[in-house]
Amino acid sequence: MKPERRPGFLPIQTNWFDRLFISVVLWVALSLFWLRFLEPLGLSIWICVAISLILAAVIIRRG
């Protein structure tokens, strides 16, 4: 893999696929956490989806 020109904020060197993978992993982790602890409080799962998508966008563009 060609190394990135500009180092991202992630502690390891990544290419776009790694960052996509990290985003999906974080999305699933956040969703499971949300379903267990926050949804019973009345917060919709869609909030979690929105947060995850924003997070994913940030990670993929800047990671």
Binding site: S31, L32, L35, E39, I45
Partner: peptide
Amino acid sequence: WANNYRRVVF
């Protein structure tokens, strides 16, 4: 939707 996962976490 995610109903199965809703059950899994509990």
